[in-house]
Amino acid sequence: MRNLKCCVLFVVLSVLFSFSVAFGEKDGLPDEFCYLDNIIPDAVYDVRYYGTNNFVGERIDGYQVERVILTRDAAAALAGVQKELAPFGLGLKIFDGYRPQDAVLHFVRWAEDLKDTRMKQQYYPDVQKKNLFRDGYIAEKSGHSRGSTVDLTIIDLKTGQELDMGTGFDFFGPKSWPENMEMSVQVRSNRALLREVMVRNGFKPLKEEWWHFTLEFEPFPETYFNFHIK
Score class of each variant (00 low, 15 high):
182 E>Y: 13
129 K>A: 06
70 L>P: 01
142 S>E: 04
12 V>L: 14
113 D>Y: 12
66 E>F: 04
117 T>F: 00
193 L>H: 04
214 T>C: 01
9 L>N: 10
1 M>H: 12
215 L>H: 05
98 Y>D: 02
193 L>A: 05
133 F>E: 03
202 G>K: 06
224 Y>W: 14
119 M>P: 01
72 R>W: 11
33 F>A: 12
165 M>V: 01
191 R>D: 02
125 P>K: 12
97 G>K: 03
219 P>R: 07
76 A>I: 10
169 F>K: 05
160 G>H: 09
79 A>W: 00
78 L>S: 07
67 R>F: 00
137 Y>V: 08
119 M>A: 02
160 G>A: 04
19 F>P: 04
21 V>I: 10
141 K>Y: 15
93 K>L: 15
176 S>N: 13
100 P>M: 02
92 L>E: 01
1 M>S: 04
188 R>H: 03
161 Q>R: 11
210 W>P: 01
69 I>G: 05
184 S>N: 03
89 G>C: 11
84 E>P: 04
132 L>N: 07
127 V>N: 05
84 E>S: 15
219 P>M: 06
17 F>T: 11
100 P>G: 04
168 G>S: 07
46 D>V: 05
8 V>C: 07
146 R>L: 00
73 D>P: 03
200 R>P: 03
41 P>H: 06
73 D>G: 05
213 F>I: 03
135 D>Y: 08
119 M>I: 08
120 K>D: 07
85 L>H: 14
100 P>V: 04
107 F>W: 11
141 K>W: 14
116 D>Y: 02
174 P>H: 00
152 L>Q: 10
24 G>M: 10
201 N>C: 02
144 H>L: 07
6 C>Y: 01
136 G>P: 00
83 K>H: 15
8 V>G: 00
97 G>R: 03
22 A>H: 08
204 K>E: 12
66 E>V: 07
155 I>R: 07
175 K>R: 15
15 V>S: 05
18 S>R: 09
30 P>A: 15
138 I>T: 08
55 F>E: 00
109 R>G: 00
30 P>Y: 10
164 D>V: 02
90 L>G: 02
146 R>C: 12
73 D>T: 05
18 S>G: 12
117 T>Y: 09
223 T>G: 03
109 R>S: 13
144 H>A: 02
200 R>K: 15
56 V>K: 08
92 L>A: 08
95 F>C: 07
190 N>H: 09
40 I>C: 11
71 T>C: 12
144 H>E: 03
